[in-house]
Amino acid sequence: MSPTRRTTRRSLARRRVPRAAALALLLATATACANDVPEADWSRGLLPGHITEEGNVIQSLWNGAWIAALATGAVVIVLIVWASMFHRKRRAKAELPPQVRYNLPIEMLYTLIPLVMVSVFFFFTARDSERLAQVTGNAPVKVKVEAYQWSWRFTTTVNGKTLPPVSGVPVSEYTKGPQLVLPTKTKVEFDLQSDDVIHSFWVPEFLFKRDVIPGIPENNPGRKFEITTLDRTGVFAGRCAELCGVDHSRMLFSVKLVPQAEFDQYIATQQAGSAQ
């Protein structure tokens, strides 16, 4: 290769490095969320401790998938090591090992085993997905979630009585977003709405999230889901998990779980405030 070509290639490589670094920085900043989300606890691993009964379903599916994947990986590694150790080339002139094509039992074995594995994965995934998508319509607490650029509005209905909506603040006055108060050990129905772009309603401790897609009719079950809260109080962070625009990182909120007695007091306070 001529010196001129080498110089040209080195020059192009030097130009590509800053461009690649700039592109990586742009992607990282475009998809990043704010780090000041309240009460976000990631210390318990990939799946934080859940606060809903539905989280038990997701946790079981997750654990089962990992156990099956690790078992499959262990079998494959053992077979690779066995083949490497006991089928090494021992002669100067390599000979083909015994061929197994047209061996019907072996072909049936390595066809049926993956088919059974995929069928088992599909069965449990379909069963749990149907369970998570089930909406009975008889939840005592119903929350209408309105996502908009760049915050949230929560309107809670308790036993047919609607409380004043809880909204976010303008971006210029942003602090931590609105807070949704819910009782423990209670079934809650969420109705997700958006009038601008696609958002995503996500509370990590739910172990579940659902996209908020504009234009879905009210009677469409795809915009509703139910959870049953566990007997665990506290404040849990929520956020938009869909890149929805320039201030996506500010679309934060929190869910506060309180005992039923404290929730009844909260309802009374909210109704008294709206009556004034």
Rank of each mutant, 00 (worst) to 15 (best):
A24P: 01
L25P: 05
L26F: 13
L27G: 13
A28G: 12
A28W: 04
T29W: 06
A30W: 13
A32W: 05
A32Q: 12
A32D: 00
C33G: 13
A34Q: 08
N35M: 01
D36H: 07
V37A: 05
V37Q: 14
E39K: 11
E39H: 09
D41K: 05
W42A: 03
G45E: 07
G45P: 00
P48N: 11
G49P: 01
G49Y: 11
G49Q: 10
G49D: 09
H50V: 02
H50S: 08
H50Q: 01
T52M: 10
E53D: 03
E54G: 04
N56Q: 10
N56H: 10
N56G: 06
V57D: 15
V57W: 15
I58C: 06
I58F: 15
Q59L: 03
Q59K: 13
S60V: 02
S60D: 07
L61G: 09
L61S: 09
L61V: 06
W62E: 06
W62T: 09
W62C: 06
G64F: 04
A65V: 10
A68C: 14
L70S: 13
L70V: 11
T72R: 03
G73W: 12
G73D: 11
G73E: 13
A74M: 12
V75K: 00
V76P: 04
V78W: 07
L79D: 08
L79K: 01
L79P: 04
I80V: 05
I80S: 02
I80D: 01
S84Q: 04
S84N: 01
M85L: 11
M85W: 07
F86T: 03
F86R: 05
K89V: 08
A92H: 13
P97V: 03
P97R: 12
Q99L: 06
Q99E: 08
Q99K: 13
Q99M: 05
V100G: 07
V100H: 10
R101F: 10
R101I: 05
Y102T: 00
Y102M: 05
L104F: 03
L104P: 00
L109K: 08
L112T: 15
I113Q: 10
I113A: 15
V116F: 02
V116M: 03
V116D: 00
M117I: 15
M117P: 00
V118T: 12
S119L: 10
F124D: 09
T125F: 03
R127S: 08
D128I: 11
D128P: 02
S129M: 09
S129N: 03
E130D: 11
R131W: 09
R131L: 15
A133L: 13
A133M: 15
Q134P: 00
Q134Y: 04
Q134W: 01
V135T: 12
V135N: 03
T136E: 12
G137H: 08
N138I: 02
P140V: 07
P140H: 10
K142W: 00
K142A: 15
K144W: 01
E146S: 13
E146W: 01
A147Y: 12
